[in-house]
Design a protein around this nucleic acid. Sequence first.
DNA 1: AACCCTCGCAACCGCTCACGA
DNA 2: GTCGTGAGCGGTTGCGAGGGT
Length: 297
Amino acid sequence: MGRQPCCDKVGLKKGPWTAEEDKKLINFILTNGQCCWRAVPKLAGLLRCGKSCRLRWTNYLRPDLKRGLLSEYEEQMVIDLHSQLGNRWSKIASHLPGRTDNEIKNHWNTHIKKKLKNMGIDPLTHKPISTATDQQKQQQQEEVQPSVACGISEREENKETETTLQSSIIMASEKKMEEKTPFDTNMHMEVVNGFCTDEVPLIEPHEILVPNCDPSLSTSSSSSSSSSCYSSKILEDLQFPSFDWHCDNNMGFWDDDLSNWDLLISDDGDRKLTADPPLTQYTPSVLDQDSWTYELL
DNA sequence: AACCCTCGCAACCGCTCACGA
DNA sequence: GTCGTGAGCGGTTGCGAGGGT
């Protein structure tokens, strides 16, 4: 019995997403929430497989994403976490609010790896790059103690120690925070409680404007055909406030708060995220500062 | 101006895991 | 216990942008 394809690939589109597709997906998720990804493309009118929709949403369209390069502090966090967790990007990403596993993985492969190598540190082991003789010794040790040599690849072993590891990482990073200089205190403020407060927009939701990304309407000279490029431009500008995406009882959150959100193309060619009734103010949840919630006032 | 090369990132692929029947 | 299905994860690829020659 062969592996079932994740979707019927015949007639499905692949490659970069267009503005129209993004719009459909955003509209659908904002209206219906995240449910059964396989059904999403059909219901949203997209010629994509569900997996592709999920990836597009989680890695690119999700409103709580931070855009831009990782800060020095985030980079250090990634290095620390990687030394403990290995290539478990989703675990690492879970410690960096607004960052995706894909983003961190890419940043690791393109920037941090090089940086560490330049510093004479092996990005795999996080130890100083060893000489040939050291490697021979290490190899001999591995032969003697194969189970130890397996290290991070031993998933089961990791699972058992994960909780301890993660708490120690958090403790370590907290300790690091305390050691920060006055300059670094700002960084502490940015990531306090795992939420980057500097990213919180100071505009009201009904004021959120999404620049029109329809390439045909673009007056920009850089009329790139790459959807990724225009999308990243949109999303740089589109500073969705971050809020709680967890949905118990099958998207109850959406039903309560966001079912009336809509993405509109206004007369002046801009996209507008609107709510009905209009949200007059949004505030961070006092109890759970890891996530922000909207409050209808 | 044209070509080549490198880099960075979005997207894809395929495997594993979780869960329900 | 087995099977089917959906979702998540990590590795890899493809392609556009930008720099160098």
